[in-house]
Design a protein around this nucleic acid. Structure first.
Length: 519
DNA sequence: AAACCGCTCAACCGCATAGAG
DNA sequence: TCTCTATGCGGTTGAGCGGTT
């Protein structure tokens, strides 16, 4: 949009003179690229008068630029200590991390990158998004994803940053009450595709692995849950959305009786779209809907690294022959197949270790690696499958938390526990944000605390405890009714945990931060 | 050599917010 | 409390450049 008033684009320096005449339409203000002469004038002005009061630049310096333009020019190009040139690897890493934490808060990101401007960062990021989207790579390296999630979990529930990645829907006027913030969710783990809104072109959307997706959740109808749509990226979604749909508590409760129990859920999944690569697609799990495997009908228990009918990057969901245990399996790339047995053995060992739940919880994060490392590992075929565990039926479950049961409560507890040691890092900011919370969120919180089945404290205290899934809990309800694999697994976990101690969760089997590190 | 294509980056636009009067 | 103004922020645009066909 570099266009001067004459409609021309980026012009050379002589455009200045050319612009003079046409500027009349804009009160003599020039648009388009800055000339060196203009830069000099602006620099001189700032030297004399300092920054700010940009509108007076035109008056006092004779520069035919609006204040906005002057400020932008100064901030992005003329101010001292600006770094020019390509981002260093360290800066790139930082940007990725910051974006995972902050979302599209370019100015805040720029504040963390001395000498860099928000515009630069924004451009870099958009380029990166394009590039990685095209390449079918996840937007975030595995390590960053994990860290970002960790940080999200560390944030107190009440402190949803107004500038956080999820804030848009918190404050969205379109939002119905109560809307669930992903960070409130216990189930913000698994990404799926939507059957209600199959947008094939989204298949390669790297947004789908974006933990900072700016979700918007709308109630669709009585039966199901809409695919979250975002004005930022309509492709963004995650399983978390399914737990953050806009339903009233009563709706939740009415639908809560975990329809993935063997009764109402027939045990078949149908992902309308294959989950390809490391991307997952939002899924609308309408209660009662059948979910079937898109790529391979084979149940996972028949699927080993060697026998898997899935292609290297296909994620699979299958049902256990024993319990209604639904498992989302990580794609087992052929590169990894040679290691699978070892990993399975290791996972099996882990699964037997009933006392190591807490420690195993950390395993997944311990596997977080820098992008380069992940790439290296991936290239070497040493793809880390976090916590592959095996249930009693020989079903391999790819578990993000190792053998720790991924009940919603546990995840919630994880979050709370993480918060507990997270420190009060952003306390001030968070307090400000709390003050800015809108009624919607407050309503949500009221509701949230009104349902006492699972309070934060309980959940926190429940870490490591053998907490069954409370099917009447509003927290279990969305999971059960909206997410096939996760909910079913959670249900199965709850229903079989006492009879099958080795059955471990597969709840987080498809989460963005446990995706193959192919970055 | 020319056409095409994709990428980068500078700049603009609209909206939101803060502060002053 | 309201209005106006200045500033900040994020999204978008499009020229220019380099690579490819």
């Amino acid at each position: 949009m570099i266009s001067n008033s004459g409609g021309g684009g980026a012009l050379s320096d002589d455009a200045t003179s050319g612009m003079g005449g046409n500027g009349g339409a804009n009160q003599g203000l020039k648009k388009g690229p800055w000339t060196t002469a203009e830069d000099a004038v602006l620099v001189e002005y700032v030297k004399r008068h300092g920054e700010g009061n940009w509108n007076s630049v035109q008056k006092n310096s004779g520069l035919s630029r609006c204040g906005k333009s002057c400020r932008l020019r100064w901030a992005n190009h003329l101010r001292p200590n600006l770094k020019k040139g390509a981002f260093s690897p360290e800066e790139e890493r930082l940007i990725v991390e910051l974006h995972a934490k902050l979302g599209n808060k370019w100015a805040r990101m720029a504040a963390q990158l001395p000498g860099r401007t928000d515009n630069e960062i924004k451009n870099y990021w958009n380029t990166r998004v394009k590039r990685r989207q095209r390449a079918g790579l996840p937007l975030y390296p595995q390590g960053v994803q994990k860290e970002a999630l960790h940080q999200q979990q560390q944030q107190p529930v009440l402190s949803h940053s107004s500038s956080s990645m999820f804030s848009p829907f918190l404050s969205s006027p379109q939002q119905t009450k109560p809307s669930f913030n992903p960070t409130l969710s216990l189930f913000d783990q698994v990404n799926f595709t939507t059957s209600a809104n199959p947008i094939s072109s989204h298949a390669n959307s790297s947004f789908l692995s974006n933990p900072s997706s700016q979700f918007k959740f709308f109630p669709n109808n009585n039966a199901g849950y809409t695919m979250p749509l975002s004005p930022v990226s309509p492709f963004q979604s995650s399983m978390s959305s399914l737990y953050n749909h806009s339903l009233t508590p009563s709706q939740l409760l009415s639908q809560s009786p975990v329809q993935f129990n063997s009764g109402s859920f027939d045990g078949s999944f149908n992902l309308n779209q294959p989950i390809v690569g490391s991307q997952f697609h939002p899924i609308v799990a309408v209660p009662g809907m059948n979910l079937k495997l898109p790529a391979s009908p084979s149940p996972l228990q028949q699927t080993t690294s060697a026998s898997s009918g899935a292609t290297g990057d296909d994620y699979m969901i299958s049902q256990s022959t024993t319990a209604n245990t639904y498992v989302v399996a990580q794609p087992l790339s052929q590169d990894t197949s040679g290691l699978l047995d070892d990993m399975l053995k290791e996972a099996e060992t882990l699964s037997r270790n009933e006392n190591s739940k807490e420690e195993n919880c950390v395993v997944q994060f311990g596997n977080a690696q820098a992008e380069d490392n992940s790439m290296a590992a991936s290239n070497k075929g040493k793809h880390v499958l976090d916590g592959i565990v095996q249930n009693g039926a020989g079903q391999h479950m790819w578990s993000a938390y190792g053998n720790r049961q991924a009940t919603p409560e546990n995840q919630w507890a994880d979050s709370c526990a993480a918060q507990a040691h997270a420190g009060m890092k952003r306390k001030k900011e968070q307090m400000e944000e709390i003050a800015c919370m809108d009624d919607d969120l407050l309503s949500l919180l009221d509701w949230h605390h009104g349902y006492g089945d699972v309070s934060i404290g309980q959940l926190t205290n429940g870490i490591g405890a053998n907490m069954g899934l409370d099917h009447t809990s509003p927290f279990s309800a969305p999971a059960a009714t909206t997410t096939a694999a996760t909910a079913a697994t959670a249900t199965a976990t709850a229903t079989t945990s006492t009879t099958n101690p080795s059955l471990k969760q597969g709840m987080e089997s498809c989460e963005w931060y446990t995706m193959p590190s192919i970055c």
